[in-house]
Amino acid sequence: MSEQEEKPKKKTRREFLQELGYVGVGALIGGSAIFAGVNYDKRKKQVDRIKVLTAENELIEIDKNGVTKVVKSKKEILTYLQKEGREGIPGKRWVMVLDLSKCKNAQRCMAACQSSHHLRPEQSHINTLKMQESINTPPYYLPKQCQHCDNPPCVAVCPVDATYKRPDGIVLIDNERCIGCRFCIAACPYSARTLNWTKPLHDDEDKDKTYNVELNVPQRKGTITKCLFSADRLRDGKLPYCVSACPNGVFYFGDENEDAVTNGTTKVTVRFKKLLADNGGYQLMPELGTKPRIYYLPPKGKTYPFQEKDKALLDKELE
């Protein structure tokens, strides 16, 4: 199913959780509910029906008119979001593949990420780096973010379980818990973490929002913020913000268990392992034993030239 067709699900679900609270359970049981796995064509026509994810993680479809809206307190919504954010999406093992031969430093990924996570310009969950290993090897651009390691050094050192690994592979940070000790920053070899050193960018506007650990908004002063693999979007069947924003087809995102990744630009889905096998996929600093969930395809046969000003910068660094 295309991303577009999944769209209504997000709106309804988020509206429910964030503004109205859960759907009355009675309405769910009350006859009108049928499971989502019904025929694809039939579903599209049912304008008056909406999809809801139950607390048991079952996606169900119900009649809009049969819904009882239960207004829940902010605290209950927060508790729900926190619980959901720790459990992850069952059965998934998210992976990302970045094709370095396509990156031309458009930085759209950075911009999309910063705007969706309310970050300051100097804070980035994803950062496109200008790289060159030695004077004779070619320069290239490296979009770098949290590698969502399977052996995460940052999670290991966290004293309060604020940053944690989920069963679906995502490493998240809980800003209701973080004490700002920055041990994780020290431990991360990928420099993937950043702190809200001062008042967050949209602190005043976000004041009344319920904290969503899967989006890490509102950002909180004195706590860590980092790439979340757009966990909130994945729940709605959508690709991460950076992946969708890339105009150059650099990003692939998908589920290792399904052996499929989808390109964020072309939306084409390919076999994950075959993509790595055909293009010599590798990981960043695998020698550290962090077991990243992000894979890179080498910048072989770059489709774009490396910009001159960046070249000059690297030459200076390598001298």
Partner: peptide, 9 residues
């Protein structure tokens, strides 16, 4: 084949 984010031809 239907996959989480799209169709795998």
């Amino acid at each position: 084949a239907k996959r989480y984010f799209g169709r795998l031809q």
